Amino acid sequence: MLYLRTLTLVLLATAIVGHLSRRMRIPAVVGQLVVGIILGQAVLGWVPNDQFMHIFSEIGVIILMFMAGLESDLALLKKYFVPSLAVAVFGVVLPVGLVFGFGFLFNLSVESSLFLGVTFAATSVSITVEVLKEMNKLDTKEGSTILGAAVIDDILAVLILSVLVSVYGNVGSSSGGTNSILLNLVLQAVYFIGVYVIFKWVAPILMSLGEKLQVPASVVLMSLVMCLGMAYLADLVGLSTVVGSFFAGIAVGQTEYRAEIDHNIIPIGYAVFIPMFFVSIGLNMTFHGFISDLKFTVPLLLLALFTKWFGCGLGARLTGMNFDSASIIGSGMVSRGEMALIVAQVGFQAHLLHADYYSGVIMVIILTTLIAPGMIKSALGRQAKNMTQQSAETTE
């Protein structure tokens, strides 16, 4: 019954720390990440990072991104597709290029340096989504651009990672290669065609059918079937599960049941699963070799923060957004979270990431995830202050 102790500890700790975070006016997600660090292997060691935590955290991030899709304005996502594309491309190219060069400074091989760059090209906007939701800024041009860029970023990162593992990786198998990559590309194209079909016809039919079922909360139940089903199919074709759940949320959000589902899905997510997800990221933190790794982790952390903030911000600026909006978008793409952790694990298993640097890379990923909410809040604060000043100057 160890899982009951884990669940009790995590939920109690996140409830208390979440309350204190709100009182201190810092994003609640920061407190939940810290809970994971304190309860995990880094400090107390009370909560293991086991299969139970993995399953609950995976469901948590799937539900969180489903809610993000549910609350997104499809018209805004379409309107800001070009900025999203520019943000994603620059947000991948800059980290890959500069972190690749950084790897050379530590005498890493070409493939290891390239993989290090790909690791920090990955973006996890689940943290950003939580902060934007908390500050009622998710359904804005900046929020829509971040969400769109995150989907494109995920596709680019998966494609580059597939090529790297196929060309350089050593996972104990000689099968795959170019044919496997081409097959994945075809499957992913079919998946996105399927997403369009679901948008147009399947979602309205399923939700209408759900309303007719003689079971409690049938509409919410059917929406979860779509959410989990599309996440599963995305995983099958080599995409992240959050891509599938995000599109499921958008599809359901176009139906007349959006308000009912939004109201009822919040308790399901925030009562158990979403706190488990944020805590699970903190559980990956360890202070093993902290001092000896500083000469590697400190410059890598600065580079990780700068390349995403500047690269994504540059993409936004080149498509006509002002500095404040570009800064919010750049800050919103800084968090590496679970995406980079997954990429790092894949690379480690494929012998693309040297064991001597693995713990340092994990630490930098966790630190970017901890720092990102503060950067977003600061950028939003500057935007609000500048808008107030401009409004005052206009009325004078």
Rank of each mutant, 00 (worst) to 15 (best):
A355I: 11
V92W: 04
P275E: 11
V219C: 02
F192Q: 06
T178A: 15
S166P: 10
M321Q: 10
E130K: 10
D356K: 13
F52H: 15
G315L: 13
C312K: 10
L183G: 15
Y357E: 11
T241R: 01
R336H: 12
L4I: 06
L114R: 06
P267L: 08
T369A: 05
L380P: 04
V252M: 05
F246S: 01
L209P: 00
L300M: 14
G69V: 08
K377V: 14
S112P: 07
A149N: 08
G332E: 04
F247E: 02
S72W: 06
A88D: 05
I261F: 01
F104N: 05
S208A: 13
D73W: 02
M53K: 06
G40N: 09
E134K: 11
S280W: 01
I291G: 11
E134P: 13
G238W: 01
A379I: 04
F90P: 08
S112V: 10
V158C: 10
V190R: 03
T241F: 00
S84D: 12
V252G: 06
F104H: 10
K78G: 14
Q349C: 00
I198M: 15
T119C: 15
V47C: 09
K308Y: 12
L12H: 00
G31Y: 09
A304P: 06
L182T: 01
I274T: 10
I268N: 12
Q345W: 02
T6Y: 00
L380C: 08
L64T: 07
M321V: 05
T395V: 13
G330D: 08
V93P: 02
A217S: 07
G169C: 11
A13T: 14
T241L: 08
T395C: 11
N179C: 01
L283W: 07
F247N: 06
G313P: 13
A379N: 05
L98E: 03
L206E: 01
I63L: 14
A149G: 10
S84R: 07
G60I: 09
S180R: 09
D139Y: 08
T319R: 08
M53N: 02
L161H: 03
L224H: 11
P48M: 09
F277R: 03
G313E: 08
L70W: 07
Y196K: 15
T145E: 02
F100N: 12
F273R: 01
V158D: 03
M285P: 03
T368C: 13
L221D: 05
G330V: 09
F323T: 15
A86Y: 15
L367V: 10
A234P: 03
A150E: 03
